[in-house]
Computed example of a mutant assay.
Amino acid sequence: MAGANDLKKLAQKLSSDGPYKYLSTPRRVRGLLNAKFAFDTINAYHVWEHPNYPQFYVPVSSFTSDATLTKTSSVEGTKEAVHFGKLSVGSRSTDRVLIFNNAPLKNLVKIDFKEIDQWFEEDVPIFVHPKDPFKRIDILNSTRQVKVALDGVTLAESANPLFLLETSLHTRYYLPPTSVMWEYLIDSTTETYCPYKGRANYYNVVVHGKEYRDLVWYYRYPTSESAPIAGHLCFYNEKVDISIDGIQERK
């Protein structure tokens, strides 16, 4: 199958070694494809194909009457433990599908996350990949002085930042828009998505005639769990100089 080599390697790895970790979830998981729900289940699994974050695998029995799920061919090297599949809803279909026949993932289906128009946990849309139930975000008000500089130019300074702490990642400093030197910022067309924070927009920074792309991001309408950061700006720690109460942060 053209373009299926990554799925083939994943199937071979999972059939021989098993997933890094897997866990049933009580969340209701649904997937919208071609304006119809292709599956609807309260028996999904979080499956960590690698240590970084999980994917949702859904039971074969969870597919709706609007969807057609078919096995196509056995994945070479899995001894019939995994099949490629095809999921169709009306005129739309995807073959970025794996169907598992043996434990521990028996009767579970992996659909490439990007192939579904919209995933839902309960009634909440999710983006990029499912949230890891073992990770969390804390957003803390602080009165520590945060200063952001680049090539000797101060870009922002605030005594009332928000510290965003996300499990296993750098602390990010979200600063009020009134604390930023706007003359150095220009709009970027870049947009990215985070499963924990929502859709981010960006600014480029111009210092001494040199443009640094996408050095600043912000969320106009973050997810409810990250609502306090709405409208605040965050500078890319690893690419600027940040000092906290006069002590420069190590990159």
Rank of each mutant, 00 (worst) to 15 (best):
R27S: 14
D123G: 05
Y202K: 02
G152D: 06
E249N: 12
F127L: 12
V128W: 01
A44K: 05
E121N: 02
K13V: 05
V97K: 00
K9M: 08
K21T: 05
T25C: 04
S243N: 01
T192Q: 05
N141G: 13
K71R: 15
D214E: 07
V240R: 03
P161K: 06
K135C: 06
P195S: 08
Y236V: 06
F134T: 02
A38R: 06
N237D: 14
G77P: 12
T189L: 00
K86A: 11
R28G: 01
E49P: 07
L169I: 11
V216M: 09
V89Q: 03
K8F: 08
T78H: 02
L10M: 10
D187R: 14
V148Q: 04
E183S: 10
A230S: 14
V109R: 01
K106F: 00
L233N: 00
L108M: 15
C194F: 08
A156M: 00
L10V: 11
S24W: 03
I247N: 04
K71N: 10
S158V: 00
P54D: 05
Y212T: 08
L14N: 03
K106D: 11
S179W: 00
E166C: 11
L140E: 12
D66I: 02
K79Y: 08
A38M: 03
L185H: 13
D6M: 13
A81P: 07
S15Q: 08
Y219A: 10
V60D: 02
N204Y: 10
G3H: 09
I247V: 11
F39C: 10
A4P: 03
L87P: 05
P125Q: 10
Y219P: 07
E121W: 11
E49L: 11
L14R: 00
S65N: 01
S93W: 07
H208T: 07
S91Q: 12
F84C: 00
M1E: 13
E183I: 03
A4D: 14
I126N: 01
I42L: 13
G18W: 05
K147I: 14
R96S: 09
S226C: 12
V89G: 01
P130R: 01
L87N: 06
T192A: 05
P177C: 11
I242P: 06
K147L: 08
R144N: 02
I111T: 04
Y184V: 03
W48Q: 02
L155W: 07
P51C: 06
P19D: 01
N101Q: 11
R213E: 10
D95L: 03
Q55I: 12
L140Q: 15
Y184C: 00
T70D: 13
P26Y: 01
I139F: 04
H129K: 12
Y45I: 04
E80D: 14
P195N: 07
S168N: 14
E122G: 02
D214Q: 05
H170M: 13
S226P: 03
R172Y: 11
N34Q: 09
C194Y: 06
D6S: 14
K71G: 06
R144I: 04
Q12D: 00
S188M: 07
F39N: 00
M1T: 15
L7E: 04
F163V: 07
Y203G: 06
S158R: 05
N5W: 15
A38S: 10
A200T: 05
L105S: 09
L69A: 02
L175G: 04
L150T: 07
A149N: 08
H208W: 01
K21G: 08
Y196M: 12
S93Q: 14
T78K: 01
